[in-house]
C-alpha cells in the first residue's frame, strides 16, 4: 500500500469530520436566544447591526451562513471582534496569540518529558521495590490532579506567600527572555505536572514489558552494563510509544491551556476564547473554537499517519 493512498484514506475522513464539526458549531450560533449581531454590539444602532449581519453572513440562512463562514476562514479571513469603538481583525489576534499558546504547550511538554524519562526508567528498573511503589503511588495521585487547582495552589504558594514570581502576566521572549521564562514557570509547571505523571506511568509500563523481552535478557547475558542495556536496548524502543503519546497530547493540551491562560492572564489563544465569551463576540468565539478543533483533528491525524509510515509493524498490521 503506497503512502499516497494511506494519506487519502486518512485525509478524507478527517476533512469530513472537520466539515461536520464546524457546521454543527455554525448551527449552534443559530440557537442563541436573540440576534447574534445584537448580542455582539448591544449598544449599536440597527444600521450597524444590519451591517454586521451582512458582513458575517448572519443575514443568510443556516447553510448560507456556514458557507460564508467556511469560505472566509478557508481564504484566511477570520472575521472580527466587533467592539463598541470599532473592530479588531481576528486574523491579527490569532497571529499574535497562537505562538504564545504553542510556546506554553511546548515548554510544558519539555518539562514533563524531562521529569518523566528518568523517573519512568528508574521506576521500571526497580519494579516492585520501595522506590517504584512510592513513585507509582505519587504519580497515580498527581496524574488526576486538575491543572487549574494546581495553578491556583502554585500561585498561592509561590506568588502570594513566597513572592518569588508575579502571580499573573506575560512578557514576550524577544522583549526580556529572563522575565519571560520566570513568568512562564507557574503556568508551565501547572500543565506539566499531570503530563509528567502520565508519561512516567506510560514509560514505566512499557519499559517493564520490554525488560522481559528475550533480546534484553540476551544483551544482559552478554555482559553489557545495566546502564547501557537500559539506555540502548530498552529506552530506545520504548521511546516511540512515549513520543507518540506526547504528540497526541498536543491537541488535548490546547483545551487545557484555556483555563491556565485565563488564570495567569497569558495572551494566548485560550485566553482569547475566554475574552470572546466575556465580550459576547459569539462569531469570533465560533471561529476560535472551530480553529482549535481543526488543529486538534489535523494534529491527531498527522501523528497517526506518521507512526504508521515510520513503524513497519503497524503498517503491516493494517495492510
Amino acid at each position: 500500500m503506497n503512502i499516497l493512498r494511506q494519506l487519502l484514506r486518512r485525509l478524507i475522513p478527517m476533512f469530513s469530520i472537520v466539515v461536520i464539526a464546524t457546521f454543527l458549531l455554525s448551527l449552534l450560533m443559530r440557537l442563541l436566544p436573540g440576534d447574534p449581531a445584537a448580542i455582539m454590539i448591544p449598544n449599536g444602532s440597527i444600521d450597524q447591526q444590519i451591517e454586521i449581519a451582512k458582513e458575517t453572513g448572519l443575514d443568510r440562512g443556516l447553510f448560507g451562513y456556514y458557507w460564508k463562514w467556511f469560505s472566509d476562514v478557508f481564504t484566511g479571513d477570520f472575521g472580527k471582534y466587533y467592539l463598541n469603538g470599532g473592530y479588531r481583525d481576528l486574523g491579527g489576534v490569532i497571529a499574535d496569540t497562537l505562538p504564545v499558546t504553542l510556546m506554553l504547550i511546548i515548554y510544558a511538554q519539555i518539562v514533563a518529558l524531562t521529569i518523566a524519562i528518568p523517573l519512568g526508567l528508574a521506576s521500571a528498573y526497580k519494579e516492585g521495590k520501595r522506590f517504584d511503589r512510592i513513585t507509582s503511588t505519587v504519580m497515580f495521585t498527581t496524574v488526576s490532579f486538575p491543572s487549574f487547582a494546581l495553578a491556583l495552589i502554585f500561585s498561592l504558594i509561590f506568588a502570594v506567600n513566597l513572592g518569588w514570581v508575579d502571580p499573573i502576566g506575560y512578557v514576550s521572549p524577544s522583549e526580556n527572555l529572563g522575565e519571560h521564562l520566570k513568568l512562564m514557570i507557574l503556568p508551565v509547571m501547572s500543565l506539566a505536572f499531570g503530563l509528567a505523571s502520565g508519561y512516567t506511568r506510560l514509560l514505566r509500563t512499557d519499559v517493564i514489558a520490554t525488560l522481559k523481552d528475550d533480546y534484553v535478557t540476551m544483551a544482559a547475558s552478554k555482559g553489557i552494563s545495566n546502564r547501557r542495556v537500559l539506555w540502548r536496548h530498552v529506552f530506545r524502543p520504548s521511546s516511540t510509544t512515549l513520543l507518540t503519546s506526547a504528540a497526541l497530547n498536543m491537541g488535548g493540551l490546547i483545551g487545557g491551556t484555556i483555563v491556565i491562560e485565563t488564570i495567569f492572564v497569558i495572551p494566548g489563544i485560550g485566553y482569547e476564547i475566554f475574552y470572546s465569551i466575556g465580550a459576547r463576540q459569539v462569531v469570533a468565539m465560533q471561529t476560535l473554537i472551530a480553529l482549535i478543533s481543526i488543529g486538534y483533528v489535523f494534529f491527531n491525524t498527522m501523528v497517526d499517519l506518521l507512526t504508521q509510515i515510520t513503524d513497519p509493524r503497524t503498517r503491516e498490521r493494517r495492510a
Binding site: 442563541l32 465560533q286 486538534y296
Partner: peptide, 21 residues
C-alpha cells in the same frame, strides 16, 4: 468520532456559552 474530535472542555464551552447564554 466527530464529537470526540472537539476537546471536551471546548465542546462543553461552546454548548454552554450558547445554550445558557
Amino acid at each position: 468520532n466527530i464529537m470526540l474530535s472537539i476537546p471536551n472542555l471546548v465542546l462543553s464551552l461552546a454548548l454552554l456559552s450558547v445554550l445558557a447564554y
